[in-house]
Every structure is written in C-alpha cells, then in structure tokens.
Design a protein around this nucleic acid. Sequence first.
DNA 1: AGAAACATGTAATAGGTTACATGATTTC
DNA 2: GAAATCATGTAACCTATTACATGTTTCT
Lengths: 177, 177
Amino acid sequence: MSLPHALLTALIERPGSGLELAGRFNKSIGYFWPATHQQIYRELAKLERDGLIQSQAEAEARGRKRTYHVLPEGRQELRRWIEQEDAPPPLRDALLVRLRAEAAVGSMSLDRALRRRRSDHQSRLTNYLSIEERDFGDGPQDKSAALQHLILQTGIRHEATWIEILTQALDILHREQ
Amino acid sequence: MSLPHALLTALIERPGSGLELAGRFNKSIGYFWPATHQQIYRELAKLERDGLIQSQAEAEARGRKRTYHVLPEGRQELRRWIEQEDAPPPLRDALLVRLRAEAAVGSMSLDRALRRRRSDHQSRLTNYLSIEERDFGDGPQDKSAALQHLILQTGIRHEATWIEILTQALDILHREQ
DNA sequence: AGAAACATGTAATAGGTTACATGATTTC
DNA sequence: GAAATCATGTAACCTATTACATGTTTCT
C-alpha cells in the first residue's frame, strides 16, 4: 500500500510523466520500494481518479506524454499517511531459507549462490557509497537533506551487514568437520 | 516461491501437521519467511499432489489431523533448490517511504511512528538475544548449529541496525532549525 | 523512409492477506 | 451438554511480476 504514497512523494519533489517516474524510481525511491512502469501507470491513473493528482497532456492519445502534478488533496493525503504506524516488515529473504535448508540436509552446494550474493551486495555498497560522496560529501545539512542521507545510510548498513553475514556463512561451510 | 521449500525444510527437521507447522513457523522460519495457516494448507496439498511429501490421517474427514513427512523426491527437490541463485530482495519498508515523504513535505508528525517502530525492534532484539542465550549459549557448534546460529545473528544485526537508524531519525527530527 | 527511443497501456498469472466456514476433540 | 480449542479448509481481494501490444517522436 505504499506505492501511491511513494509516487505522491516523487511528484512533489518534481512533477513528471509515468516513464520519467519509472526512471527516477530506479535511482532513488526504487531502492527501497521498487515498481515497474506497469504498476506506476496503474497507480497514477487511480490517483487521478481519486482526485489526488492531475495530469496535463498536449493531446488525448495513446502514445502522448502525460505530465502529472500533485493537488492539495494529494499533499494532504500524504501528510495523513506519514503518521500511520505499522509493524516492521519481515526480512523475507530466500537465502535465509536456503541456509536453514542447508543446515537440515547438508547438501554442500551453497557456495556459488553465497559468493554471487556477496558480490551483488558489494557492488550495491560501492554504488551507495559513491552516491553518498556525490550528494552528501560536503557541508552541513538541513533537516530534509539529513533525512535523505539517513535513508541512504540505511541502505549502506544493510549491504554491509549482508557482506559480513555471507562471509561468515562461507567460513562455516568451508570448515572441516 | 520459497514457501514450499521452507515447508520441506521444516518437515525434514520434524514431520507434522498443517497447524503444527503453522505454530512452529511463528517461532522459527516464520521470522524470515512468514506464512499463515491458509497458505500452509494450500502449499502442503500442492506438495503432496506433486509427490514431494506424503500424509497419513487416521480417517479421511475434514477436521481430522493429517501428518506429513518428506519423500525422497522432496529431499531431492530441496537439494536442487538450495543451489539456485537469486538477487537480493529489496528492503520494501514503508517507513523509508515515510521518511522520504517527511523530507519532501515536512509534516513533523513522524515522531509516534518512529518510537513505536523502535520499541518493536527493541522487543524483537530482546527476544532474539534470549533465544541465542538459550539455544547457542554454551559449547562449540557443528556445522548445522553454526548455520542456524548465523541465521539468528542475521536477525539480531537487522534489529540492532534499525534501532540505530530510528534513533538517528528521531535526533534529526528533534533538531532545531 | 526506416530504426531507435520514448511513451502509455492491457492481460495473465502468482503470491500473500483477510474474512469466513466447518468439523473434531478436549475440558469443565 | 456447552464452550473452548484444535484442525482443516474456501473464497474474495490486493499487490506485484511478466509478457505482450501499440502509438509517437526523434534521429539518420
């Protein structure tokens, strides 16, 4: 249920069309709330039906660009939603199921999957660190920038934790006995 | 797509019925792959149709207990699945969307949600630490126990990271200016 | 004019969540 | 015998994923 609110946030940061949003998502909000363009178009249409955003298009036709912006009602709805409480989402990581399965059957075949995952996390970490350098490298931050930095740091810590975990897992699997 | 394999793992650890599994899930695999009893019954039926597990019941009737165990084909399927590689799942945490939205609109109303989340993570952490004390407190571990311990440590680090993040977020929101 | 890129969508499927329905066993 | 608990299931819905379809603009 967060996608519509993620879209409202992105459109407040800057109005745009469905495909533009899909592109921006890949490099920002999508790191913690991914969405495909199909999902985005569907939700944008619904948000407009609900009167939270509005679109302008040069002409009403299929392949024509349609730019959305947030209405006051949308901003209001976002403010309302921000203060909702919800429980922490579960990890839901298949790799943990695999580790548990390995502990149960001892197949000894996890090695490749673990290395692959570790290198995935390593490249994500590198990417996040270079974004941090670029966007938050110098100077003091206002509240808004500090929050965005914190979100990025969440990703950084997440990747770093996984790298450690996977290294430990490989150690365990390679131990004698 | 991990639920069937999580169930195979649980049934290898110990055969059981649908509701028993649902109960066990809440205290073990469910920490990183939650499932309701409805899902579990559906998947068990499918696993039996596919010839991976088999059930025994005293009588064929609706409310009668039905105990499942894993067939060799199921064990084989689990071994095959373990070595599959997959990309890290996204964080998909609504709270990060909320932080980003707060950065965009500055509603100043996140406080309660952040404290609630932090205390959720704190009680989970306490719970995990006491499980660690109880199950892995003393002595050296064989490979299987070391893996299960590592899975628990993943949860512990996850909760600890979130507590830090949320504390930082509260600091930022309470800052002057 | 043709190709590539931009742009918006539809359809089918799978997985998970929530609400509800029903039978069997145990306990008081 | 009634209530609580154990146990198995159905149905409706929502979200996300994947594959496909189609129109428009720009570049060469």
